[in-house]
Design a protein around this nucleic acid. Structure first.
Lengths: 168, 168
DNA sequence: TCCAAACCCTTGGATGTCCTAGTATATTGC
DNA sequence: GCAATATACTAGGACATCCAAGGGTTTGGA
């Protein structure tokens, strides 16, 4: 997007917070703002890698989730819960993946309310290729030190558990 | 949204990566996925607090940025650079803030290409109140240990510098 | 048995982000 | 001094996310 700034805007914000008498929350503010910005940077990298495959991150996540399901199929509500996104977001993603021939909807054998999402052969192949690309071009060059990766996994894991994402 | 899951889906994904022979990138994958999810949780909290003020996070950020500018005004391209979002996103936010009477556009005194965004009195007041609410309801109860906040600020600061966000 | 409550998915609407392209104004270089 | 290039903002389009509401299916208690 643009050239590097001469100063870190988040560090500046932190100083502004301290200067206005909010020193007690300046650091958490900076940490949270940094998470927002980091997510934006990482998402942009991921989308760049996935674009040649005709995938977005949301669609890739669903495809990857299905590829790890033993049967290659999952109920939509299960996918929504595991991906932790709103059910309508799954509907949206499935619509587009289905148009692309990567997944298909099928009725649940015993529960008439439920729709199963099934990976097609093309979908399984594309998931493999896209995962390989992400591994090589994003995860293998994450830009985090190995020790920092450990820290992040622990800190954010604690946070997510605390936020009610999962029990444990 | 929903009830807590019985297991951490990101830890499961990490195990899946290891099981498929991608152990070398399993940890960074988990860290990056955790950042995505954490951002989602934090954004939802922030939007909940801002909703009563008629603000979204994007609009709040612009309002806050202006409130810290000495003159209470900034060129749009400057705001775009500091908030690190696309210029069209700033146009969008300014449109809505202007409709709400919180900011106004004015021509740059010497550069005819540039538009200045100015805080109105109402905008300055609302920025103060919204910031107080965020400080009390989000940043003061971030859910991160103080020592983890320090770690996050450092780790993500290193990452952002490395990603070209700023010099230093 | 049967109807109300709970659950599942989809549609429609509001927001935000980015990209591409187009218009207007400045700057640069010949 | 003037044309070519660069910069600033905006319009239109593609996507994703969420919420609110609606229609169909199951479940469970009276």
């Amino acid at each position: 997007m643009g050239a590097p700034l001469p100063r870190d805007p988040i560090a500046d914000a932190q100083r502004n917070w301290e200067r206005h008498g909010w020193a007690d929350v300046a650091a958490p503010m900076a940490a949270i703002t940094a998470i927002m910005r980091t997510q934006q940077i990482l998402l942009a990298r991921i989308e760049t890698v996935l674009k040649p495959f005709g995938l977005t991150f949301a669609r890739y996540e669903l495809l990857a989730l299905l590829s790890f399901a033993r049967s290659g199929a999952l109920p939509m509500n299960k996918a929504s819960a595991l991906l932790q996104v709103h059910p309508t977001s799954v509907t949206n993603a499935v619509d587009r993946l289905q148009e692309a021939g990567l997944v298909l909807r099928s009725p649940h054998p015993t529960d008439g309310r439920t729709t199963l999402i099934e990976l097609t052969s093309a979908g399984r192949t594309l998931a493999k290729r896209a995962t390989a690309a992400l591994n090589a071009e994003v995860f293998a060059q994450s830009g985090f030190e190995a020790s920092d990766v450990e820290q992040l996994v622990r800190i954010l894991g604690d946070f997510r558990r605390n936020a009610g994402d999962f029990d444990g």
